[in-house]
């Protein structure tokens, strides 16, 4: 590892992710902690965990940049980029453009188009609505009376294809309750919930070029990737650390910005 190191912190709605790259851009470590209600505290914890995993010292870090919904609320960070920029940059570490990044997180879903030169050319975020996000899956797990962590295994037992017709998460919850009353199997409904996420996401924007899937939902619900692949009819690339890709991207942005700037808290003890 060659100093200075560059850290990225992605403060998401559920989890705060951190990534550390060295002066050559090599990824050294990542970390994930629950965000909870204390955004600044979560970023401190994620950063401490990151240094511990990398076996690095604080004073080796030249700059810390932030991304994610809490990006402006992280005192550690000297600068920030949006998660749109960070996810595109992160994906480009693994795949060259032109590509489409499909990021599915806890509270939002994004489709980001990147051209052959690696420039972001457009993006779409989901509307002010939980459909097509991790929150939707949480709600469905609640309706099916399983912990969210067991939803993937449950969906593996699906036998019947069920289509959920509602757009809104609340209405879908009601629809699922009705289907349960009709005797539909929870496993089939779990798979239907994943299909619904994929359908909502693909309704946001046309996908072009190579397709890269990122985000916590992609990391923890592999069925989403399977269904995405089936729906678009071509390979969906899942980079290493799909959940931390935003943190990787913003760490890379910090590195690309060069030596520690006046704003970068180099040498400052967290």
């Amino acid at each position: 590892m060659r100093a200075p190191l560059y850290a990225g912190i992605d403060c998401g709605s559920w989890n705060t992710k951190a990534a550390l790259v060295d002066a050559d851009g090599a990824l050294l470590a990542t970390a994930v902690v629950r965000t909870g209600a204390d955004v600044a505290g979560a970023s401190e914890r994620a950063f401490a965990e990151l240094l511990s995993r990398a076996g690095a010292a604080r004073d080796q870090v030249g700059a810390i940049w932030s991304t994610g919904f809490g990006r402006h609320a992280i005192p550690l960070a000297g600068a920030s980029r949006t998660e749109l920029d960070s996810h595109a940059r992160g994906a480009l570490q693994y795949v060259s453009g032109p590509l489409t990044v499909i990021d599915i997180g806890g509270q939002d879903a994004k489709i980001i188009l990147v051209d052959a030169e690696g420039r972001r050319i457009s993006h779409k975020m989901n509307r002010k609505c939980a459909a097509g996000t991790g929150s939707f899956l949480e709600e469905m797990a609640l309706r099916l009376d399983v912990p969210i962590g067991q939803l993937p295994a449950l969906a593996r037992d699906a036998k019947e294809e069920i289509e959920l017709g509602s757009f809104c998460t609340v209405f879908t919850g009601t629809e699922v309750l009705g289907l349960i009353r009709q005797g539909k199997r929870p496993a089939d409904l779990a798979r239907a919930a994943y299909r619904s996420v994929v359908k909502r996401v693909l309704e946001m924007e046309r996908v072009e070029g190579k397709v890269v899937a990122t985000g916590g939902v992609v990391a923890h619900h592999p069925m989403v990737v399977e269904l995405l692949t089936k729906a678009i009819g071509r390979e969906v690339i899942v980079p290493r650390n799909p959940q931390e890709i935003g943190a990787v991207g913003v760490a890379v942005a910090a590195r690309e910005a060069g030596a520690p700037s006046a704003e970068a808290p180099a040498g400052r003890t967290p």
């Binding site: 920030s80 980029r81 420039r119 972001r120 060069g258 700037s261 006046a262």
Partner: peptide, 20 residues
């Protein structure tokens, strides 16, 4: 909006710490 402006930055000569 911030992401859109970053996109514009990506098309213009890069100014890396523009948001600092």
């Amino acid at each position: 909006i911030e992401g859109f402006v970053e996109q514009l930055e990506g098309q213009a000569p890069r100014s890396p710490a523009a948001h600092a």
